[in-house]
Design a binder for these strands. Structure first.
Length: 363
RNA sequence: CCUGAGGUGGCAGAGCGGUUUAUGCAACAGACUGUAAAUCUGUACUAGGUGGGUUCAACUCCUACCCUCAGGA
């Protein structure tokens, strides 16, 4: 079975660095007893997807890797070429070897797949990422999925039942005009079972309603529906899930110091430029966290001090949400990055898994 | 020093003479099968600058003091 390594965990645990180090180690130790693979990283992050969100999403390595390369140089020069639905100039960017970054000669995929003005979503992610991963495997390398977006990761690994039921823009536009009560009524009428299945929290979440209604109102005999269960996720691969954590307080401290260094790296400038390139503040706010706050700063709604304080809190909350999400993830080998010797331990487990092939159940 | 405004919970910020309480943010916990760094839910907690009054009752009225801010000198 083809193998895929996953490194998941909340923000600021250093997932990417670990993945890069693993990749580098493997290359260095080539020729030893194990048949070490070469690795390529696959980002699983709902914001690194977007072009131009570099510093604020941590694509830009903070400890200035000298050999950072960005193969796709002129991506943002808006030429006259036709653009795909993600606002990229060529539909096949990924196939043609674009859409990745290279750090110390290690490729990182699923960066810069979509224009930030355009809304990306899970389905887009799954489709692209699957393609990328298959391609990496075909080239005989080990894909390392580096994931902070639990939902995307889950969809990629396990599939999403209604993934094939498309977005109905017209319907959404109408539903968005309705208030919560109206949405509730509509779903109750349309699909009582669906309503029953929603928990209290989702029953007050307009955004969930809109999709639920969207699903419920597709004709169940439609072609989309028939195809709806096709996507089955990753059953065909041998997946090892590793996870990085740290105590809350440690994480918060790391987040705060990282925030300072992102500011030093020119995060504000970056946001200014994005806005100059036509990214509205409204849209920027939708992008959340750093960009959301940066938009507020640039729009004059908050001061620089407020930016730091509020953003820090927001990212703390985000990390918390990620931890809550990942807690329910099954069969993850967790490593506390504040514990001693976690790195060699992790490497050992990974190598054993990679080399073994048959000793799969160790947790 | 004068004049004006004001001092409310971790922060911001309302109303009100009387036990039900603003509210928002933050905190804590959680949900989440197509915006997921988004969206949503639940919980707890913490007040009324200080000292005097008035009143059956004061965060709410009066007063002195302290402090802050703005304008003046």
């Amino acid at each position: 079975m083809k193998k895929v390594l996953v490194i998941l965990g909340p923000t600021a645990t250093g997932k990417t660095d670990v993945a890069l180090r693993l990749s580098a180690n493997w290359r260095i130790t080539q020729g030893k007893p194990f048949n070490f693979p070469q690795c390529e990283l696959v980002s699983c992050d709902s914001r690194q997807i977007y072009t131009g969100l570099d510093i604020g999403t941590g694509k830009m390595p903070s400890n200035n890797h000298p050999e950072l390369v960005r193969p796709e140089q002129d991506r943002r020069v808006s030429g006259s070429g036709s653009r795909n639905k993600f606002g990229m100039t060529n539909r096949n960017d990924i196939k043609r070897g674009k859409g990745y970054w290279e750090i110390n000669r290690i490729k990182i995929w699923m960066y810069d797949v979509c224009d930030p003005k355009i809304q990306f979503n899970v389905k887009d992610y799954v489709i692209h990422a699957e393609k990328v991963i298959e391609d990496i495997l075909k080239r005989g390398k080990l894909p390392i999925i580096v994931g902070g977006t639990g939902f995307y990761l889950k969809a990629l690994l396990e599939g999403l039942p209604n993934l094939e039921i498309p977005i109905n823009k017209k319907l959404r536009r109408e539903l968005e005009k309705l208030n919560l009560k109206a949405l509730q009524n509509k779903l109750q009428k349309l699909s009582p079972e669906k309503w029953e299945n929603l928990n209290n929290s989702d029953r007050q979440n307009p955004r969930r309603f809109i999709r639920a209604i969207e699903i419920a109102s597709t004709n169940s005999t439609s072609e989309e529906f028939l195809r709806a269960t096709i996507r089955g996720g990753f059953k065909k691969y041998d997946v090892l899930k590793t996870g990085l954590t740290a105590p809350r307080e440690v994480l918060n401290k790391r987040i705060d110091s990282r925030l300072v260094s992102r500011l030093d790296q020119g995060m504000v400038e970056e946001a200014k430029n994005l806005h100059k390139d036509g990214l509205s503040f409204t849209r920027m706010k939708e992008l959340g966290l750093e960009y959301g706050m940066l938009a507020k700063l640039l729009a004059g709604e908050i001061s620089e001090n407020q930016l730091v304080d509020q953003l820090s809190a927001k990212i703390h909350q985000y990390a918390k949400r990620q931890m809550t999400w990942f807690r329910s993830e099954n069969s993850v080998f967790w490593f506390d990055i504040t514990s001693k010797n976690w790195t060699p331990k992790m490497e050992k487990i990974v190598l054993k898994w990679y080399d073994g092939g048959n000793d799969n159940t160790q947790n």
